[in-house]
């Protein structure tokens, strides 16, 4: 049965790996840094994807992020500086996880539903 928790267990699957118990109310960048995980970051408010990581299991609340487009979200990317876990999670972190984060926009254009959420056309309306 789903229930609210104060802490969740985060598994880092790359970069030497590790399992950490983190506060559910705080951004993952902050709590993982406190555990000594060396993570990239930039703006620290959800605007720039420097800290993006790939979520391969579990769920987060990243409602504050404004940087990811819908394709990046569909590919599992989360912005650690604002993402808070809502379950146990498994993450790949750092640029090693960025294989699908960056794409040449001319060679591989976005579909209307894949744009950032504020301008994307809902599927079925395009």
């Amino acid at each position: 049965m789903a229930q609210l928790s104060d802490t969740w267990t985060i598994t880092i699957a790359n970069q030497g790996s590790g399992r950490f118990s983190v506060d559910a109310q705080r951004p993952l960048l902050d709590t993982l840094e406190e555990h000594g995980v060396d993570l990239p970051y930039g703006c620290r408010y959800g605007g720039c994807i420097t800290c993006a990581a790939k979520l391969t299991a579990g769920a987060v609340d990243q409602a504050e992020q404004v940087a990811l487009n819908n394709r990046q979200i569909a590919n599992g990317y989360v912005v650690l500086c604002v993402a808070r876990p809502t379950s146990d999670c498994t993450l790949e972190v750092g640029v090693d996880s960025h294989d699908k984060l960056y794409r040449n926009p001319f060679l591989d254009p976005l579909e209307p539903h894949e744009l950032k959420p504020d301008i994307a056309t809902p599927i079925g309306e395009s």
């Binding site: 930039g42 605007g47 720039c48 404004v66 926009p105 976005l110 744009l115 301008i119």
Partner: peptide, 18 residues
Amino acid sequence: APNTFMPGFDLEEVGHLK
């Protein structure tokens, strides 16, 4: 806007006047 260009360039956002 920083929130537009910092994450990277999407050509479609030019058409959306971003």
